[in-house]
Amino acid sequence: MKTNQKKAWLFLAPTIIFVTLFSIYPILRAFGMSFQSGSLIDLTWTGFNNYKYIFSDPDFWLALKNTLLYAVISVPVGLAISIMLAWIIFDKVKHQSLFETTFFMPYVTSTIAIGIVFRYIFNGDYGMLNFLLRNLHMPAPDWIDDPAMSLTTIIIFGIWSSLAFNIVILMGALRNIDPNYYTIADMYGASGKDKFWRITMPQLVPTIAFLLTMNIIGAFKIYTSVYALFNGQAGVGNSGTTAVFYIYNKFQTVGTPGVAMAATVVLFLIILFATFLQRKMMKKIGEN
């Protein structure tokens, strides 16, 4: 037991050193910096001024609004589509792994590269999407260059990207459901609808809770896909700005790290709160 002590810390040493330096310290530092003003090399105490600043900054509110809207729309829609597709694959398809492999592709490929392709497909003039929409006699908006459309475009891309992880995890969960449930249900002549709502969905609740958490956290951190869609901008006239865009801008471009860190702390608290709230909700649903 005694000898184990020293050894254990030795084995853990690299992890503990790196984690302290690059995970724990930066959290504390971010928190501290949110109460400081000035440039990175000359920081002075400023109390709650940074927080006052961001809460009276319309850009921050726009970033927050966009981020929230993105999360609130893309996460449930993406998850609903994923559940539908996973269920179809699980219930009807013989070559499940073929579809799994297909749907999972976006998860491993670079968001930046695919974002560039989407920018091109979404192009208002020569894009494939508008070509299709015009042929179907539907409105063909300017997805990229119209500020009013920025968020919609971001959401569509977000949903497209989110299916991969969701479907694969859901397929794993579906396979874990005891097949006897379905056999018994069939014996009693249950319809497909009944089987889905009475057996599948209740069994999926923990997985859906997990996916909701992961998706919401991911949605609040959205940055790269916006960057790729709008070629480094946050949409025309910053119309598609997000929380991380705001933080990056304040930190790197404007050079006010204190303000950026105040926004980071707020974003972090929102993520924590959303996760907490959502866990509570899922628990309630699970109990019923």
Binding site: N4, W9, I27, A30, I217, F251, P257, L272
Partner: peptide, 30 residues
């Protein structure tokens, strides 16, 4: 291995899993 403080390490690691990378990336830049 068995050692004192294992439980604490585990808890700290698990809570750090919750911290989004974007929240610490800027101070790491620093």
């Amino acid at each position: 291995l068995r050692f004192k403080g294992k439980g604490i390490i585990q808890i700290v690691m698990l809570s750090l899993l919750m911290v989004p990378g974007e929240a610490i990336i800027f101070t790491n830049y620093n």
